[in-house]
Design a protein around this nucleic acid. Structure first.
Lengths: 163, 163
DNA sequence: ACCTACCGGTTGACGTGTCAATGATGCTAA
DNA sequence: TTAGCATCATTGACACGTCAACCGGTAGGT
C-alpha cells in the first residue's frame, strides 16, 4: 500500500484528487448560491445583502438606531467597510447619520422611513428565496449535516486564527 | 401538532428558526473560508484566486495560451470580467495579449515566464491551505456529505435557472 | 501643562465584479 | 450591394471590499 492510498489522516501534505474535486464543487457551489441569493434580493427589493444586514440590525435596535461601532460589531464588519456602505445607503435615503449625544466623536445611525419600508418589503421574498435555494434543495439530514460541517469548518478557522 | 412543527416538507412558505440559523452558519462560514483561503494565497504568492484560476488554465493549455473567449468559458467567467482581470494581470506582467492569427478580432492570451513562475510557486502552498482549511477540518464522512450537499444545491440552482 | 497613546470614524487608493454600451469584423438575407 | 446581425473583445460607470493613512478628541503619565 503506497502513499497514494494513505491509511491515516495527516500523513500527507496535499489533498487527494477526490478531495480536491469535492473542494471545488463545494466552494464554487456555495459562491453560486450566495450570488443567486444576492440577485434575487436585488430584483425583489433593490437591496443588496449588505443593505439587508444593516437594515435588519437597525430594525431590531431600540429607537431603530445604533452607534456605528456597535453596528459594525453586531454584523461583524470592519468599521471602514461599514462607513463606506453607510455612505452609499445614505445617498439612497435608507439611513441617516448624526452626531451621537452620549459618545464623543460617535456617530448615530438612524433608520429612515424609506429604509424601514424597503426592509419590510424585502423580508418575505428574502426568506422565501432562502427556502427555495437552500432548504428545499436538501433533505432534513443534509440540512443537519450542513450545520455540522459549517460548525466544524468554523472551529477550524478559529483554531488556525491568523490575521 | 401545529404548523410550527410541520410533518411534511413544502407545506410552508418560510424557513423555520433552526433552518435559518443553519443557513446563516453555512453561508457565513463558507464565505469566511473563501476569504481565508484568498488571504493565504495572497500572502504566500501575491496572487488572488482569480489570478490563480487564470494561470492554472493557461498552464494546462497547449502552447500555454488560449483565446480569451475559450479561457472565459473554461473558468466560467463572463468575458467582461475576464477582460478587466487580464488588464490587471497584464500590468503585473503575469500574462500577455496579442491578436489571434486564426480568429478575426480574437485575442490570444499568453502565459509569461513571470506568470509561470508565480503559478509554480503558488501551487503547493495553495493546495496545502486547502488541506488545512477544508480537508483537515472535516471527517471523511463529512467530506463525502459536503460533496453531496454541494451537488444537491447545484442541481437545485440548475433547476431554478433564472437569468 | 504637555506629550503621547488610543479611540471612533472617515477617506483615498486600489482590486474586484456586474451591467450596459461601444467598436470592429465577418455573415446573411433583401 | 448593402443593411442588418451575430460574435469577440473592450470600455466606462458604478457597487463593493480591504488596507493604510488620517483626523479630532479624550485620557494618562510625567
Amino acid at each position: 500500500m503506497t502513499e497514494t492510498t494513505p491509511g491515516r489522516r495527516g500523513g500527507r501534505q496535499l489533498p487527494t484528487a477526490e478531495e480536491l474535486r469535492i473542494w471545488r464543487d463545494f466552494i464554487e457551489t456555495t459562491a453560486a448560491l450566495s450570488s443567486r441569493l444576492e440577485s434575487r434580493l436585488q430584483s425583489d427589493s433593490s437591496l443588496s445583502t449588505g443593505d439587508y444586514a444593516v437594515l435588519l440590525a437597525l430594525s431590531e435596535a431600540e429607537g431603530q438606531s445604533m452607534r456605528s461601532s456597535e453596528l459594525a460589531a453586531h454584523i461583524g464588519w470592519e468599521r471602514s467597510r461599514l462607513s463606506h456602505h453607510l455612505g452609499r445607503m445614505e445617498r439612497r435615503g435608507l439611513i441617516r447619520r448624526q452626531e451621537c449625544a452620549t459618545v464623543p466623536r460617535g456617530a448615530e445611525v438612524l433608520l429612515t422611513t424609506t429604509g424601514a419600508e424597503a426592509f419590510g418589503g424585502a423580508t418575505f421574498p428574502h426568506l422565501r428565496a432562502i427556502r427555495e435555494l437552500f432548504v428545499d434543495a436538501l433533505t432534513p439530514d443534509q440540512i443537519v449535516a450542513a450545520g455540522e460541517i459549517a460548525a466544524a469548518l468554523q472551529r477550524n478557522l478559529d483554531v488556525l486564527r491568523e490575521g
